[in-house]
Design a binder for these strands. Structure first.
Length: 570
RNA sequence: CGGGGUGUAGAACAGUCCGGUAGUUCGCUUGCUUUGGGAGCAAGAGGUCCUAGGUUCGAAUCCUAGUACCCCGACCA
């Protein structure tokens, strides 16, 4: 491609709208343009990257045995009513009506449609198993779209749905997809980790997420370097302490803690460590009465885990200040279990705590030396907290470390959740009607582009892996429009590289060298050749890899073999 | 959805408090010079100051309503 015949529109300054680095760079590099909140145009340069990501995904999906199809973006309400999700899905579902006032939605996902396809087509066990996939535009009306295409409302997703006669076969395909996803992210050149995950609202039994590792990731991941254990912190189990509780030493003592409401403030006033305190969190119970959750002061409540307690109202709702006031006769920041008549549930890290600090149910006062049984009834102990760095691994093989990731893939064993609701059945060998087992497998295609940049950038711009860079090689001729020697050599090399099937860009603009270097660094072309009169006179050409710190000179005759060896290394 | 903020040239922003000729930097156009890390000089083009209504001799500026976008908030006990 010649830059003069393409469209490159870069910005020197970071736009005001972008908060995270990948969003800023995507706009500066001219990859995307915002149309409205959470909705972006993919400009020619960005589209090249998106298409390369798509092609790798398509390639590996085909290789895995999955079959591509394309379902409609606009879907009739009837299907969603059948699966009961028309009511359940909430405001994230973009709904619309046609001229006859019939209800439709713009698909946020395609379980309903694929189920409709399969139930019309599949009659016999002989037709199974099947795995259908598509790469298609979704719309989810997010509460707050942000970070550019990282959390957009309209986005591209690869979604696959598999159908089986039995659970064992679903498990086989699940592993097949797990391996396929691992191959995809490896080919994309990204550092990633597969982690055990919560199944969330989609339901089902087994589930893994695939995360691109990046400091700025929205998800926390716990993994064990000594084993292959890895899980989303939402799910990672915090084991109960094994050491026995020391016996109580101190008496219950009311301390004046004026103005101290947070754990940090209480610790400062009493000059103690947060691990010696217990925080009291009030949640609305199933019966509408407040339920008190106790968590060690330096730990965090895990909402997902709390959501699994049958005593609590769903979804988890924090009690209002008024409700707290009524139940504890004190305000948030000074409340505790002593004298509280309602239900108390404690995180099991508290099992071996004694002589801890807790709110005294009296504004500006806390108890020190609090103890179970002696001062208030021993509560039920359950796993309620997020694991922290250094916690023992749930598989007993070492201790956990934490890192952050961006979720780019998620695979589920749906089992029969949708096939029952949508009446997906087949006839078995005996001619008997059976329910189909189902799995689903998603990849956020547009999000991958943002995640790849989040993971691979420097002060000059993108350093994304070559397989997904907008171009593989760029030629920068110095004085293309002035110097016959340079132009001839650059054009010849461009022809040669293009003929060899290498995705080559030649910067034939009448720009100053600095501007060309800056643009090509920004858009992240991994291999760069600079063609100048100086070098040509010695039959030499300059090469610099995007991540290299130094350029190198090589004989012009060796360029082709050189770049081919580089490509093999990608 | 609650709270906060911002809408002024293609981009980033000043001007708004205290009403009186529409500004700066970058980008864009033309010319000359320049050409190995986002050039210099000169001349230019480019505006529904978000929209509607109001106050006023006069509104980017004040008032009312609307609208769009951005940020924060579901870990506070």
């Amino acid at each position: 491609m010649r830059v003069s015949q393409f469209f490159i529109s870069t910005l020197k300054e970071a736009p005001a709208e972008a908060e995270v680095i990948s969003h800023q760079l995507m706009i500066r590099a001219g990859f995307i343009k915002r149309l409205t909140s959470g909705v972006y145009t993919w400009m020619p340069l960005g589209l090249r990257v998106l298409r390369k990501v798509e092609q790798i995904i398509r390639d590996e999906m085909n290789r895995s045995g999955a079959i591509e199809l394309l379902m409609p973006a606009v879907q009739p309400a009837e299907l969603w009513q059948e699966s009961t999700r028309w009511e359940q899905y909430g405001p994230e579902l973009l709904r619309m009506t046609d001229r006859h006032d019939r209800n439709f939605c713009f698909g946020p996902t395609h379980e309903e449609v694929i189920c409709d396809v399969v139930r019309r087509e599949v009659k016999s066990y002989r037709q199974l198993p099947l795995n259908f996939y598509q790469i298609q535009t979704k719309f989810r009306d997010e509460i707050r779209p942000r970070f550019g295409v990282m959390r957009g409302r309209e986005f591209t997703m690869k979604d696959a749905y598999s159908f089986h006669t039995n659970y064992a076969d679903l498990e086989r395909e699940y592993i097949n997809m797990y391996d396929t996803y691992s191959r995809i992210f490896t080919r994309l050149g990204l550092k990633f980790r597969a982690v055990a995950a919560d199944t969330g609202s989609i339901g089902g039994t087994g589930s893994h997420e695939f995360h691109v590792l990046a400091e700025s990731g929205e998800d926390a991941i716990a993994y064990c370097p000594q084993s292959d254990y890895a899980a989303n912190v939402e799910l990672a189990e915090a084991l109960a302490p094994t050491s026995p509780a020391p016996s109580a030493q101190k008496p219950l003592n009311e301390q004046h803690t004026p103005g101290a409401k947070t754990i940090a403030e209480v610790c400062a006033v009493l000059n103690i460590n947060a691990a010696q305190t217990v925080k009291s969190i009030v949640i609305e119970g199933q019966d509408g009465k407040p339920v008190l959750l106790l968590i060690r002061g330096d730990h965090e409540l895990n909402i997902i885990k709390a959501g699994k307690l049958s005593q609590l109202k769903q979804p988890i709702t924090f009690a209002s200040a008024a409700m707290i006031r009524e139940a504890f006769n004190a305000d948030p920041g000074a409340i505790g279990p002593v004298g509280f008549a309602g239900q108390v549930i404690a995180d099991r890290a508290l099992i071996n705590m004694t002589d801890f600090v807790i709110g005294a149910n009296k504004n500006d006062y806390h108890f020190t030396g609090a103890n179970f049984e002696r001062d208030f009834p021993k509560p039920q102990f359950v796993d309620l907290r997020n694991v922290t760095d250094g916690d023992p691994s749930p598989d007993g093989k070492g201790s956990l470390e934490l890192c952050r990731g961006i979720e780019v893939g998620h695979i589920f064993q749906l089992r029969t959740k949708y096939s029952e609701a949508m009446n997906l059945s087949y006839l078995d060998e005996a001619g008997k009607k059976q329910i189909i087992e189902m799995g689903c497998y998603g990849i956020g295609v547009t999000r991958i582009v943002a995640a790849a940049i989040e993971q691979n950038h420097d002060e000059h711009g993108l350093t994304i892996p070559a397989p997904i860079a907008p171009f593989t090689v760029v030629l920068i001729p110095i004085g293309y429009h002035k110097n016959e020697l340079v132009r001839t050599a650059a054009d010849a090399l461009y022809q040669q590289l293009s003929a060899a099937g290498i995705d080559t860009l030649i910067d034939d603009r009448n720009e100053r060298p600095g501007a060309m270097f800056a643009d090509m660094d920004l858009i992240g072309v991994p291999h760069r050749f600079v063609i100048g009169e100086r070098g040509l006179k010695e039959q030499r050409i300059e090469y610099k890899g995007r991540r290299d710190t130094q350029a190198q000179e090589l004989p012009i005759a060796e360029v082709m073999t050189f770049i081919q060896s580089k490509q093999c290394a990608d």
